[in-house]
Computed example of a mutant assay.
Amino acid sequence: MAVVRRVQLFYDVVSPYSWLAFEALCRYQHIWNIDLHLRPAVLGGNQAPAMLPKRGEYMMKDIKRMAKYYQVPLQIPKDFFESMVKKGSLSAMRFLTAVDMIQPQFLEPMSRELWMRIWSRDEDITQPDSILDAARKAGLSSELAQQLLEMILSPEVKNRLKEVTEEALKYGAFGMPTVVIHLNGEPQLFFGSDRLELLSSVLGEKWLGPVPASPNPKL
């Protein structure tokens, strides 16, 4: 029997490209021979790529093309700077960290719902009521969501988010999304949502595009 390869996805819901990588890897986790680990992390101090004028102009076009290619309902918020830079995602990422610590089975739907809010419906992800509404839509009970919300200011959650971020940095992460795999005891890092075809080659699996249809293809 083939060994299941561990694939870690370090991501931040403020990053639209993280959403693309997230959806593609979630689609492939039962096709490729991988054990997908979702790792919420926050890389503070990095200048958002869109803040570089020419790159920002390019990103506006690129995000639309990539959203169509990946079949993800991604829409650019009306106030891009406000959503990405001024508001950020720290509270949301702490909430995801708490989810991962207490009820990890909800991490995938909760992450997706937060991306849907900011990157599809242009809604807030920073206020408590916004996070609770996202939790409800992701299937969490009101009692569990409230418990998790109360945890986001706890030292345990803050430290866990820092630890995961430091782990990503240890691997060499410099932006989101970052994918890390371990082959022959050595970590290999892939940056961005457009390196998944290369990832598949390294894993010895077949890339069937961002929306695969066939089960269990091999090279």
Rank of each mutant, 00 (worst) to 15 (best):
V3I: 10
V3T: 15
V7I: 09
Y11T: 12
V13G: 04
V13C: 14
P16S: 13
W19I: 08
A21V: 09
F22V: 08
L25W: 05
L25M: 03
C26S: 07
Y28T: 06
H30F: 11
H30V: 07
N46R: 13
L52K: 11
G56F: 00
Y58L: 03
K61V: 12
I63V: 13
Y69T: 13
Q71M: 03
P73W: 07
L74P: 13
Q75K: 11
I76M: 11
F80I: 06
E82S: 15
M84E: 13
M84I: 15
V85G: 03
S89M: 00
S89C: 00
F95E: 01
A98C: 10
Q103N: 11
P104E: 11
Q105Y: 15
R112G: 02
R121P: 07
D124T: 08
Q127E: 14
R136L: 08
G139A: 03
L140H: 00
Q146L: 11
Q147F: 13
Q147I: 06
L148M: 00
K158W: 09
E166D: 14
E167T: 05
A168C: 01
K170F: 13
Y171P: 06
G175K: 12
G175W: 09
P177Q: 09
V179Q: 14
I181K: 07
L183A: 04
L183M: 10
N184I: 06
G192C: 03
R195N: 02
L198T: 14
L199S: 04
S201R: 15
V202G: 04
E205D: 12
G209Y: 06
P210D: 03
V211D: 07
K218E: 15
